[in-house]
Design a protein around this nucleic acid. Structure first.
Lengths: 215, 215
DNA sequence: TAGATTGTTAATCGATTAACAATC
DNA sequence: TAGATTGTTAATCGATTAACAATC
C-alpha cells in the first residue's frame, strides 16, 4: 500500500470494478482473479492489480480477490458506505431521465432535490420530488446535506447554475451541458456531455479519407 | 502536416474546439489564437496547436486561426460535411431525452430511426419518428444509410442490441448502458455511462479519509 | 510440492508541455 | 521593424504493461 497521489484514471475505473463485482456477488461467485476481471472489463490484469494495490492489499496470492471483501473495500474508498445526497438542476427531458434512472440508488447515492428556473416546472412532481425554484437551492442544499450537483440545464444557464451550486457549498458537479465551466479548484467537476462523444464518433466512419488540400 | 496515427484523445477534443468556434462565429469574431482557445477551454495552447497541426496548417503565424476556415476544416475532419444518420435503440426516458436533445442537428447528425423491444412502445411517436420493433432494425439501417447506433436499453439487453447493430452494418456505437460490450475491432464504440462518472465523483468528497485498516 | 496469482519494480509506451525558429 | 503567434522538435511527465519474487 502506497500513499502516492491517485490519478483520476484510476478513480474512474473503481466504479467499473464495483459494478462487475456486484454482478459476481449476485451469482455468488466467491473469488475472482485480476486475470478474469481484465478479460471481462477489457483491461490489463496488471493494471487492475496496481489500481487496487494503491488502496490496500486486498487480494490473496494464488487465490485472487474475495468478491464480497473487495466490494466492501471499493465502496469504502468511494465513500459509498455512507448515503450521498445529490441535487439535480434542470428538470427538462434529460433531467427527468436521470432522476428516473435510479441505478445509483443501490450505491447509496440519491437525488433528493430537483430545481428548475422555468415557472411552469416549479411545483410539479418528478418521482415524488417537488421541483423547486433555483432561488431555494442554497438553503435546501445546506438543510439536506447535499454534496453533489448534477447540471442538466441549457448551456447558456450552466455557468450561472454552477456558481449557485458552488456558493451553496456543493463539493462536486456532474455537468451535462456542453460548456467548460469555471469553478474553484477545490470543486471536483466532471463533464458528461454526450454530444462531444457522439460527434467524435463520426471521425471514425469509413468511406471518406481525410486528405489534405494539397493531395 | 504529418500522417501519424491520431490518438482518440486528440479526436475527442475536436468537437470541443468546434463548439467553441461556432460560438465565436456567431459573435462574428474573425480570428482566434491558440492562447485564447486554451484559456477558454482549459487546455494548453501548445496542445491545441499540435492537435490541429496533425490535420493541416490551418493557422497563420502572428495572426492565429481564421474562425470560419477552422470550423470548415474541423467539420471535414469529423466527416460532418455530410449528413450522418443515427439510430436510437431504447425508447425509455433516456432515449426520449436524447432524441429531443437535437443539439447535434446543426452538426449534420440526425436520429432518423428509433427502436424498442417493448410492445407498448412500438408504434408510438417520438418527435415525429415512429418507434419500430428491433426486428426491423437491420432492414431499416440498411435502407436509410444509418451509420451510428445509440444504445439506451437496460444493461441486460445491451449486448444483444449491440450484436444486432453490428450485424446490420453499423460503423460506430455510443453505449449508455453500464456494461462493457464486445464488438468486432472495426466497430468504434464509446461508453457514455454516466453512473460511472457519478460514482467516481464520490471519491473526491471530503470529510472522510481513506485510511488503511492498519492505521 | 506444483500451480496460480498477487503486489511491486522496472521497462515501455504515449501524451502533454516547453521552447524556439520561422514568419505574418 | 517590432510584436504576435504558428508549427514542430525536444523535454517532461504520467500512465500502462511486463516481469518476477513472494506466497497462498
Amino acid at each position: 500500500m502506497k500513499s502516492e497521489k491517485i490519478s483520476d484514471a484510476v478513480v474512474r475505473r473503481l466504479p467499473v470494478y464495483l459494478r462487475f463485482l456486484n454482478q459476481l456477488s449476485q451469482r455468488e461467485v466467491p473469488t475472482v482473479s485480476s486475470q478474469e476481471l481484465g478479460q471481462k472489463l477489457a483491461l490489463n490484469p496488471a493494471q487492475i492489480r496496481k489500481d487496487l494495490a494503491y488502496f490496500g492489499d486486498f487480494g490473496r496470492k494464488g487465490i485472487g480477490y474475495d468478491v464480497s471483501y473487495l466490494i466492501e473495500k471499493i465502496r469504502q474508498i468511494l465513500n459509498l458506505d455512507q448515503p450521498i445526497n445529490v441535487a439535480l438542476v434542470g428538470a427538462g427531458n434529460l433531467g427527468q431521465a436521470l432522476s428516473n434512472y435510479n441505478a445509483y440508488l443501490k450505491d447509496n447515492m440519491k437525488i433528493v432535490s430537483i430545481f428548475d428556473a422555468f415557472p411552469s416546472k416549479i411545483g410539479t412532481q418528478i418521482n415524488n420530488i417537488t421541483v423547486q425554484p433555483i432561488e431555494e437551492l442554497k438553503e435546501t442544499v445546506k438543510a439536506n446535506n447535499i454534496r453533489i450537483g448534477i447540471i442538466t440545464v441549457p448551456d447558456t444557464e450552466a455557468q450561472r447554475v454552477a456558481d449557485v451550486l458552488v456558493e451553496a457549498g456543493i463539493e462536486a458537479i456532474l455537468n451535462f451541458a456542453p460548456t467548460i465551466l469555471k469553478v474553484p479548484p477545490e470543486i471536483r467537476i466532471h463533464g458528461a456531455d454526450f454530444t462531444t462523444d457522439l460527434l467524435s464518433l463520426a471521425y471514425y466512419l469509413e468511406g471518406k479519407e481525410h486528405l489534405s488540400d494539397e493531395s
